[in-house]
């Protein structure tokens, strides 16, 4: 029997704390903490999906929020058109994001380094401007989503049930990414990030594995987008402006790249900072930005670095 790793313990503790959080609403007397926390969970899920390609795969995508937007818009548009069943909406929305990720990935993964960053940014901007141009669906002003996705077994309009759904899906995503990293597929992804030249010499066609990871990450982020549309009951282009993509990168780096659970920590700290600092000044990012730089300068492995890994590659 191996002792559980500090990171697994951390994940369990976070899960328990977050599962107990709804009790807060009883003390506070309103739903505000729950609403904020639900948002944290959803953005954490987007960050976890980004970690798969950024942290494990070494692909610095500056367009990841596009998938958040695609998932959200797919739900918003389908609801507007009268398709409200979650069993129809969700698979279609995920399929759409996966397909778009396939196209963007297939083209952008032919480039490297700074070019990859710029190409992913360019594609995301294209999708952003398409959403701005969707006059039938609110254009720049966005679109109210009149009802949440309908499931026979679960009422998503109940805030507490929705919170728990997000919590379970987030931790399923974390477990999925952490598992994936240890499989053959994950080793290829991480190996290609560490030493691509050696991977080719060993006989790996790295492009197709990277592309697969890009699609999985896109689809997972699409799921976060689906949740976001249901949570806000509103979608707008600002979901996927490039600043949001940058925020996701910050969450991943702050929490600890390539750690699956780190991005949740990163998202929590990021949103906490946003909540508190933005009350002090509208230029809160001017304070937060340098703080992050200093933090990452001294703790390169992010917050997760406080919870050391077991030796070995598990």
């Amino acid at each position: 029997m191996r002792r559980p790793s500090p990171r697994l313990l951390l994940a369990c503790v976070l899960f328990i704390l977050l599962a107990l959080a709804p009790i807060l609403t009883i003390f506070v007397g309103n739903d505000y903490p729950l609403i904020v926390l639900t948002r944290v969970l959803i953005l954490a899920m987007a960050a976890v999906s980004l970690d798969l390609i950024l942290g494990y795969g070494g692909m610095v995508s500056l367009g990841h929020a596009a998938f958040l937007g695609l998932g959200a818009y797919a739900v918003g548009i389908m609801t507007t058109e009268g398709v409200t069943s979650g069993l129809v909406q969700w698979p279609l929305a995920i399929l759409l994001t996966a397909l778009v990720a396939l196209v963007i990935g297939a083209l952008s993964l032919r480039t490297r380094g700074v070019y990859f960053i710029l190409v992913t940014l360019a594609f995301a901007q294209m999708i952003y401007f398409v959403s701005v141009g969707l006059d039938a669906y609110g254009g720049e002003d966005g679109l109210v989503v009149p009802t949440r996705s309908r499931f026979s077994v679960l009422d998503l309009s109940d805030r507490t049930s929705f919170y728990f759904l997000c919590l379970v899906l987030l931790f399923a995503a974390i477990a999925f990414v952490a598992h994936l990293a240890r499989t053959r597929f994950g080793l290829v992804l991480r190996g290609a990030a560490m030493n691509e030249r050696r991977m080719r010499a060993l006989g790996f066609p790295v492009y197709r594995y990277r592309l697969a990871a890009f699609v999985i990450a896109g689809a997972l982020c699409g799921l976060a987008g689906i949740l976001l549309a249901n949570h806000s009951e509103f979608v707008s282009p600002s979901i996927m402006n490039w600043g949001r993509s940058a925020d996701l990168i910050i969450m991943v780096v702050l929490g600890g790249i390539g750690s699956a659970v780190g991005p949740l920590l990163g998202a929590m700290v990021f949103m906490l900072a946003e909540e508190t600092l933005s009350h002090l000044t509208t230029y809160w990012q001017l304070i937060f930005g340098p703080l992050i730089l200093i933090f990452v300068r001294f703790a390169r492995s992010g917050l997760i670095g406080l919870f050391p890994e077991r030796s070995g590659d598990g």
Binding site: H179, L180, R182, T183, R184, F185, G186, L187, V188, G191, M199, L202, G203, F204, Y209, A212, G312, D313, G314
Partner: peptide, 20 residues
């Protein structure tokens, strides 16, 4: 070395088990 073995053991789209 596992990666080297794996490279010659068919495709690596395998996600059921940890490689180790």
């Amino acid at each position: 070395v596992i990666l080297a073995v794996q490279a010659q053991a068919g495709h690596s789209f395998r996600i059921r088990r940890a490689a180790v």
